[in-house]
């Protein structure tokens, strides 16, 4: 599968030694500088009409997520209805970008969002720990794609990454990427993801930055995932604390920016976990605009993985429309 690469990085992935040489040859991250820059950008004041636009943009970027052991088909259908029409009383509210569920609930979700343009993402590859064999991970991916998922959120093997076995991580990502394309095919014509206009399911690679220990590792993992064929890099599963943080997202945005400069290919970024308020969401949008550039202010290249965030965005939207503070009593419980 290494031979399928057409990027300038084909020779990098020929052996663990060459991958290691490349990843460790990336410039180190200045931790204090990254923290300070993220904190500085977070102080930007976005008000009135700009805030209104940011809220609508953020709503359109939300991957509405439910990843609980207690998820039921009914809960998933309710969440899908919310993703399609976040505020039933106000048709001017845009739909969310996607819903994100476990593989066994993909079919339910696909049915629920059919024809709306909302995509269905599924976590796969032994989410959230990623501790299983490659066969199982590939099979799980194939099943999710066959059920109609147009996006696959895979987790990397953090154990292998931290042990320095970069080739193993690389090959897993490449194998899952291949499974995303293979199993899609015929299923995708009537699936919700048809709007994407291509056959293969999009692959989001979850780095689980909370377990990677250093910012240098975040940069390396980002590059590794991009070279291996990921379409998106995602911060976290949401099951580990810390989940998404601004500095980590900054480093990932720098990585996709630099990758696009070298290859011309734009990779998306998805912070997930711990983004609960409109203020947080707007901070991320500022970070995107100032780091990767305005091209990334698009649901195809930037997503927010969240569940409770959507209600806060809706409440802020209502506050701007009515001039009075909104209350959670008037929004769905989910």
């Amino acid at each position: 599968m290494v031979s399928t690469l057409t990027t300038p990085f084909a020779e990098v992935a020929t052996s663990n030694a060459s991958l290691r040489a490349f990843l460790h040859g990336l410039p180190g991250v200045d931790r204090v500088g990254a923290d300070a820059r993220a904190a500085m950008l977070a102080t930007r004041s976005i008000k009135t009409t700009a805030k209104g636009q940011a809220i609508d943009l953020a709503i359109g970027m939300v991957d509405l997520t439910t990843l609980e052991g207690a998820d039921t088909p009914g809960k998933v259908r309710a969440m899908c209805a919310k993703a399609v029409r976040p505020d039933p009383a106000d048709p001017s509210v845009p739909s969310a970008a996607a819903v994100c569920v476990y593989p066994d609930l993909v079919a339910t979700a696909v049915q629920a969002v059919e024809g709306s343009g909302v995509k269905v993402a599924s976590v796969a590859t032994a989410f959230p720990s990623g501790r299983s064999s490659l066969e199982v991970k590939v099979a799980e991916t194939a099943l999710a794609v066959a059920a109609g998922a147009s996006e696959i959120d895979m987790v990397i093997d953090r154990g292998a990454f931290l042990a320095g076995d970069y080739l193993k991580v690389f090959e897993e990502i490449a194998a899952v990427k291949a499974a995303c394309g293979r199993a899609g095919g015929a299923q995708r014509e009537n699936g919700a993801g048809g709007a994407q206009g291509e056959q293969a399911a999009h692959l989001k690679v979850i780095l689980e930055t909370g377990e990677l220990a250093t910012y240098d590792n975040v940069r390396r993992a980002s590059w590794l995932a991009m070279i291996a064929g990921g379409d998106f890099i995602k911060t976290s599963t949401g099951k580990v604390s810390p989940a998404a943080t601004l500095p980590v997202t900054l480093i990932m945005l720098e990585a996709v920016r630099d990758f696009a400069r070298r290859t011309g290919r734009k990779i998306g970024v998805k912070p997930a976990g711990g983004i609960r308020t409109t203020k947080d969401a707007i901070k991320y949008l500022v970070l995107v605009n100032e780091t990767a550039g305005p091209d990334w202010l698009d649901p195809d290249l930037f997503r927010l993985g969240a569940s409770s965030l959507l209600n806060d965005l809706l409440m802020q939207r209502q506050k701007m429309a009515t001039g009075r503070y909104a209350g959670p009593d008037y929004f769905t419980l989910d």
Binding site: G323, R324, Y325, A326, G327, P328, D329, Y330
Partner: peptide, 9 residues
Amino acid sequence: PWLAGHMDV
């Protein structure tokens, strides 16, 4: 007036 109009009060 902000408290009086607040939907969560």
